[in-house]
Simulated assay, not measured.
Amino acid sequence: MNLIGNVLWFILGGFVSFFTWLALGILWSITIIGYPIGRQCFKFSVMAAAPFGRKVEFGQGGVSFVLNILWIILGGFAIAIEEVTMGIVFCLTIVGIPFGLQHFKHAKLALLPFGARIVRSGR
Rank of each mutant, 00 (worst) to 15 (best):
M1F: 07
L3A: 01
N6V: 08
N6C: 07
V7Q: 02
F10P: 12
I11W: 01
L12D: 00
L12R: 01
L12G: 08
G13C: 09
G14W: 02
F15W: 13
T20K: 01
W21P: 15
W21A: 00
L22F: 12
L24V: 06
G25A: 00
I26P: 15
I26D: 03
I30S: 02
I32A: 03
G34N: 08
Y35G: 02
P36W: 06
I37D: 02
G38W: 06
G38D: 00
Q40W: 05
S45M: 11
V46H: 14
A48S: 14
A48L: 13
A50Q: 12
G59R: 00
G59P: 11
G59T: 06
V63W: 07
V63P: 04
F65I: 04
I69K: 14
W71D: 10
G76V: 10
E83W: 08
T85D: 09
T85E: 03
T85R: 14
M86G: 13
G87N: 14
G87Q: 11
I94N: 04
G96V: 08
P98N: 03
Q102A: 14
Q102Y: 13
H103L: 03
K105Y: 00
H106K: 04
P113C: 10
F114G: 09
F114S: 07
R117T: 09
R117H: 08
R117S: 07
S121M: 05
G122I: 13
R123D: 08
R123H: 11
